[in-house]
Amino acid sequence: MLSVEQVNVFYGRAHALHEVSFSLARGETLVLLGRNGAGKSTTLKALIGLLRATSGRIVFEGHDITRSESYRIARLGLGYVPEERRIFPDLTVAENLLVGRRAQRDGIAPWTPERLFALFPNLAEMRDRPGARMSGGEQQMLAIARTLMGNPRAVLLDEPSEGLAPVILDQLVAAIRALREQGVAVLLAEQNFRFAARIAERAALIETGRIAWSGTLQELAADGGLRGRYLGV
């Protein structure tokens, strides 16, 4: 449903992505693994149209979105949860969800605030709290919930595990697994291998803007040397 073909991105003067290619199938979970600054966030931003690819092609659900504006890409059903979460600080939880709301799509049971509150029980208790007064973990939940309000067919998650306590991570894992059961594809950017291993099926290792390796998570789990080289100390 999503295919990325030989995409190059420049960040100002820096050549941030070199000929990046991968694809994501319906209902699949793929993780882009790499260290800080490897190009994970850049890849996701290029997909959602916040950065422009200078060459290459990005196709989502049969539409060429390489040069599309963000809002059109989002309306095609590609959801994005940024690394910094970017909760609207003055908007309440309910209002943040309202911003994300889009018409329902065929084949996807429409998300409602009630369904999302069931998925993230913490949020249900703070409907009227402004985003600025939430903890990091709560903001992460809200960022995902807000994106789901758009009934996406695929979701880009940028380092959702960053800075979260283990108990919150468990909730996050449950939520992402629930998404997959709905048939929503997930593209995860992570540097936390153990977190990624709990949810993803396939992995791609990225370093200095290049895809260095791709394969299944089992393969990666079995190869300590590979992990150490691209992720470890």
């Binding site: 963000s70 989002a74 940024p82 970017r86 908007l91 889009r102």
Partner: peptide, 19 residues
């Protein structure tokens, strides 16, 4: 609410599908 969202973060508002 959309207007207030755009006031606070235009890019994110666009990424959520708002024209």
């Amino acid at each position: 609410v959309l207007v207030r969202a755009a006031t606070q973060d235009r890019e994110m508002t666009a990424a959520l599908g708002v024209d």
